[in-house]
C-alpha cells in the first residue's frame, strides 16, 4: 500500500465517521438558459479596463486590428488563432502571419466561445483551434466574439456548453480584463504577466 493509498483511506474514513447527516437544501431549480444584453456586457468589460467595440463583420474587425497595430506601434504581424484563420478572409491584409508570441509588442487574435453579460467576461475554450497560450503570452490580446453569443451569467455558460454538446476542454478561461497586479503598494498596474491590453470586437456576423 503506497503512502497515498494509506492517506486516502485514512482521510475518507475520518470524513465518513465525522460527517453529520443533515438535510441538504436542494439546488435551485434548473431554469432555462438566459441570454444577456450586449450593452451591459460592453459596459462591464469597459469598467474592467478592456476596450470593446461593435463591428459589422470579421473584415471590419481585422481592419480595426490593423489600425490598432499601426496606431500603437505594436508588432506589425499579429498571431491569429488557427480556428479563426480558417474562418475569416484575411484579404491580403498581412503578407504572412506571425507565429511567435514571445516577442515584445506581439498581438494575439483569438475567438471567444461566448460572453457573460453580468461580469463582462469572455469565455475561451482551449482546443487545437484556440490554444490557451494565445490568451496569456502575447503583449496585447484581441478577441472576436459573435455579438449574439452573450449569456446572462456564469451558470448559463455551462448550460450553453451542454446544449451544444461540448465536452469539458483542458482549459476554460473566463477573461474579464487585461492582466493586472496590485501587489506593490496596492496600486493597480496593467500587464503583470499576461496581456497589457484586451480589445474585444463584437461581430454582427462573421463574414460579409
Amino acid at each position: 500500500m503506497s503512502n497515498s493509498d494509506r492517506a486516502r483511506s485514512q482521510i475518507l474514513n475520518t470524513l465518513k465517521r465525522q460527517a453529520k447527516p443533515m438535510a441538504v437544501d436542494q439546488p435551485a431549480l434548473q431554469v432555462e438558459l438566459q441570454w444577456g444584453q450586449q450593452e451591459s456586457f460592453q459596459n462591464q468589460l469597459k469598467s474592467n479596463g478592456a476596450d470593446c467595440e461593435r463591428v459589422a463583420d470579421s473584415v471590419a474587425a481585422l481592419a480595426a486590428v490593423d489600425a490598432l497595430i499601426k496606431r500603437n506601434g505594436w508588432h506589425p504581424l499579429p498571431v491569429i488563432a488557427p480556428g479563426l484563420l480558417q474562418k475569416v478572409q484575411l484579404a491580403n491584409r498581412w503578407d504572412s502571419i506571425h507565429t511567435e508570441v514571445t516577442e515584445a509588442g506581439t498581438v494575439a487574435v483569438s475567438e471567444a466561445y461566448c460572453g457573460i453579460a453580468d461580469t463582462g467576461s469572455l469565455v475561451c475554450l482551449s482546443s487545437p483551434d484556440n490554444p490557451t497560450s494565445l490568451n496569456f503570452l502575447a503583449e496585447h490580446h484581441v478577441v472576436f466574439l459573435p455579438g449574439h453569443r452573450i449569456v446572462a451569467g456564469k451558470r448559463d455558460v455551462w448550460k450553453l456548453m451542454q446544449a451544444e454538446g461540448i465536452h469539458t476542454p483542458r482549459a476554460i478561461n473566463l477573461i474579464s480584463g487585461p492582466s493586472r497586479t496590485a501587489d506593490i503598494e496596492q496600486t493597480i498596474q496593467l500587464g503583470a504577466h499576461g496581456p497589457r491590453s484586451l480589445t474585444v470586437f463584437l461581430l454582427d456576423q462573421l463574414n460579409p
Partner: peptide, 13 residues
C-alpha cells in the same frame, strides 16, 4: 472586482 481578470478551469492533461 466583480470577477478577477482570470478565472480558469483546468481539466486533465
Amino acid at each position: 472586482q466583480h470577477m478577477s481578470a482570470y478565472t480558469s478551469f483546468f481539466n486533465g492533461p
